[in-house]
Amino acid sequence: MSTLLETDGEALLAALRGLLAAKGLATPAEVAERIAITERATPAQGARIVAKAWTDPGFRARLLADGTATVEGLGIPLRGAPPLGVLENTPELHHLVVCTLCSCYPRAVLGYPPFWYKSAGYRARAVRDPRGLIAEWGTVLPETTRIRVVDSTADYRWMVLPLRPAGTDGWTEEQLAALVREGDMVGVTVPATG
């Protein structure tokens, strides 16, 4: 392995930037375009999907059956992204997503993975002590709720459809979307009112 790889990352990036542009392999304009596209995906976009699933049973069924096509139907581009799967929380079953091998995350929908999702502690603990792990967020599930940990190891990306909180009957999609946080769609937290 080349000792050049031990060069600091900032210097490697600066060197590659020029070389790749000169070779036509990656131009600054192409890189800037991908940054702009990536920044369009945010947890707020995921929250909009969740709120729609909470209020539209047909959409919910389609989302759970085929996440990729259903999300694209909302105008969210998944070009170049892996297929999206959506897993539904119920009072009996709670999902918690992790990638123990690296950091697979439904980026096309939720944006960049959060720092904690990529950390060694999160990756190591989620599969073995999920209840202890989510307690770090103050999340405590009822004793009767089973946890299903989802280790995202391969070609899909997984997003959690959280349980709609009680006391939200009649709320609009916008009001509901405002309740949903990033962690709710990974399973470390659950949405709540107030």
């Binding site: 599969v127 073995r128 089973r146 946890i147 299903r148 940990v149 989802v150 280790d151 995202s152 190891t153």
Partner: peptide, 21 residues
């Protein structure tokens, strides 16, 4: 899907783990 008790000596009965293989 695997039962947590199949994977870990301290796994909790009823909890399980889903993984792509």
């Amino acid at each position: 899907v695997f039962n947590e008790t199949e994977l870990w000596p301290d796994g909790r009965a009823g909890d399980d783990l889903l993984v792509e293989l």
